[in-house]
Design a protein around this nucleic acid. Sequence first.
DNA 1: GTCATAGTTCGATGATAGTCGAACCAATTG
DNA 2: CAATTGGTTCGACTATCATCGAACTATGAC
Lengths: 103, 103
Amino acid sequence: MTEPSPLPHPERDAIELTAVLFALSDEARLALVRQLSNGPLDMVDCLALGVNTPKSSRSHQVKVLREAGVIISELRGRRRQLTLRRSDLDSRFPGLLEAVLGA
Amino acid sequence: MTEPSPLPHPERDAIELTAVLFALSDEARLALVRQLSNGPLDMVDCLALGVNTPKSSRSHQVKVLREAGVIISELRGRRRQLTLRRSDLDSRFPGLLEAVLGA
DNA sequence: GTCATAGTTCGATGATAGTCGAACCAATTG
DNA sequence: CAATTGGTTCGACTATCATCGAACTATGAC
């Protein structure tokens, strides 16, 4: 069983459109979301955030996506697994994710 | 014939996804776009930007949408008519506008 | 237990974005 | 023509966001 992450995630119904759009309006974060569209990834394996980018910066970008409700960030051992909240986003904003990823 | 506006608009192919998402990530701008989805509107008639909002602030918000390629801003007499660039956006990011407006 | 790994949090700093008054400009009205 | 209307642009200020080092925490490896 995966223990729930201590970091807060918004409930599905609390996800706000403007927050999602803002989170996706950054090249690096958008690249990360594209990577995650192929399945979950450990944070350390996400090269979308830049290879030489310091940990604190990477952590910040992930935080923005998490707080907007775009991804889930779960502790798995000492790593953190990132998962795109595809079904939550699809149910709340149908077609949005597909349109963004398809572009 | 409507004279072309002196203000610059990006070509359809130059419209960038992140710029569009950023432009739509603001409540007031999003509200304006929703209004424009019902057809063109003169800027002075757009109450989505707020009734007491000063001219310079309104102008700024419209500028962000225009520079992102979301709307066209044409001089019509001494008014400025705003039009949603629906077909340009649809052809470049299929389904995006529909998803955003439907949410 | 000790050490390395993976990541968060904090605080400072720099960059970017929003707000608004004031001056300006062009087109319409009278 | 002059006055009004509708809007842009500029500059100053404020607020928000991004970057990054440093300190700290927790897990897994040895």
